[in-house]
Amino acid sequence: MKKHVLFIALVLIAALATPLFAQGGVEAKSAGFVPSKDIEWIVTSSPGGGSDIYTRIITDIMTRLNLVNGQTFLVTNKTDGGGEVGRLQVSRVTAGKIADHTLLTFNSGDHAPMVKNTANRIENFTPIAVMAVDKQLLYIGEYSKYKTFTEVIAAVKSGKNVVIAGSKGDDIATYEMLVKELGFTQNQIAFITNDATSAAITSILGGHVDLVMSKPAAADQYVAAGKLVPVLALANARFTGNLAAAPTLSEVGAYANVENPIWRGVVAPKSMSAEAAAFWSSAFEAVSKSEAWLNDYINKYKLVSEFKNSVQAKAYMEKFEADYLKSLGK
């Protein structure tokens, strides 16, 4: 029975969305590109992680909605050198059929270390799309000494030290923005980098740190169980649902809001033809407008769906890189 319902729903979605795709398809066809071989999609993190799930959900939806001319996606996880090897490889693909059939999952968490540790830059890629953004919150645990963020600020001002646990990459950048805005030093509010948000949550559940930084999805279950309580939204506006109680920084005191959007995107080799880039951009747009994308990804992982096409994504990523380089003093 369930299967039937699902099938009917899919048919309906397909029927409703057909005009859209048709349009995209026509555009792409007139531009002269349709996939004609297997598509190699490189992911620079391990199987099962956030980027991998994101990639596999998109490939699944693209295949189901028949956006890629019946071709197969070959998802390859290239984790050497913290992902830098895979990124360099994609940036160096020479023009031709292979370049038109190569994609790379590219997130702010990939972009920042690439710029920091290597000479590889976004200009070596063709940005295809930005699919979603995510933001963080600060939470307290059961054993936390402070109950609100106002108390945290007061404690720091009275000479106490506060420790925040979080994940790598994006979380560090957000933390640095927060400390700067508050006008404290990195000793007064210290940050512990963990390999994953789950490890950071582990340390606050055991009462080893004062605050934890997390995106809504990773902390969701703990908030529902009352083990974590959100105390600060690192965003320009409050979150909704069970996170609505957390104020933004401007509500806490005379500060500007701190927001560091974490984006998930896709890029291709620099040598990808303009026709192929246009085709892929519209294919990703179709995914982002599909029901399946909203249900299986955006709502499930509590992200904000925010589509940027090839042109917008290029400007967005370039700005991100320029801002980040500036913050590094390069």
Binding site: G48, S198, Q221
Partner: peptide
């Protein structure tokens, strides 16, 4: 971690409420 990823894909929420 991979199993955890799997749990989430199946629509289960691993966590204190599982």
């Amino acid at each position: 971690a991979v199993l955890l990823g799997g749990l989430m894909m199946w629509g289960l929420n691993p966590g204190p409420l599982l």
